[in-house]
Design a binder for these strands. Sequence first.
DNA 1: AACATTAGTAACCGATAAGTTACCAATCTT
DNA 2: AAGATTGGTAACTTATCGGTTACTAATGTT
Lengths: 119, 119
Amino acid sequence: MALADPVRRDLLRRLAAGPARVADLAAPHPISRPAISKHLRILTEVGLTAAQDHGRERHYRLLPGGLAPIADLIDELSPRPPFAESALDGLDLEVRRTVREHVGEQTPRTSPHATEETA
Amino acid sequence: MALADPVRRDLLRRLAAGPARVADLAAPHPISRPAISKHLRILTEVGLTAAQDHGRERHYRLLPGGLAPIADLIDELSPRPPFAESALDGLDLEVRRTVREHVGEQTPRTSPHATEETA
DNA sequence: AACATTAGTAACCGATAAGTTACCAATCTT
DNA sequence: AAGATTGGTAACTTATCGGTTACTAATGTT
């Protein structure tokens, strides 16, 4: 994903404040200009930015539409209206939990990763 | 970023429909179960999911709050109300463009990446 | 008690990604 | 026209990532 890289996110934030030349975009970053160039290419390829040449400089700007796919994903992952099924699953879990509770047990296993709750 | 991987996005979509066991989460994917385990660890580390043990099975569920950071980013990148500065930059670009227009020029350079507009 | 099932860890491998330096092209400046 | 500025490409290096197989632990089943 294009948003995966912190440098790229930074570039986008900068561009959210308006178009900018490559040199200006690169300035705040400790990495080489070719590296910035690559990031800009990636952002452009996925439709998040676009460029316009003005003589020897190139102005990049944000294409807000490019965010749509991610926006879609996040609300696809927000079980807002129809959390009916979800609620049922939760009920199911609750039932099983309650049942096991009455037999008495602990759950160690091989130090599982961040199991937080061991209901 | 955790959302960078398609498998992970799939797991999240599945979990959006309610909690699930690891085996069920792994089933639709052609990759090995340890690979799924890794993905689940990553998702859990960034706070997108959580797990509960039920005997020998482990139920993962979505933690909707985990999406906040990305949600924040996307609307941070949406120059909605204060696009005043942006508008000014655009104007500036337009001015320079217009000026150059009257001198006559083409812009080839070394086959730049997806320059689209060469105003 | 023996076996099957569920799931995590360890160690390793190949591909990808992000960075570097060196170089070139085009445009502006003087 | 010479030199400086701007920005992209090429080739390479290294670190990270996603995957694999082999193994182990714990729980459930018969």
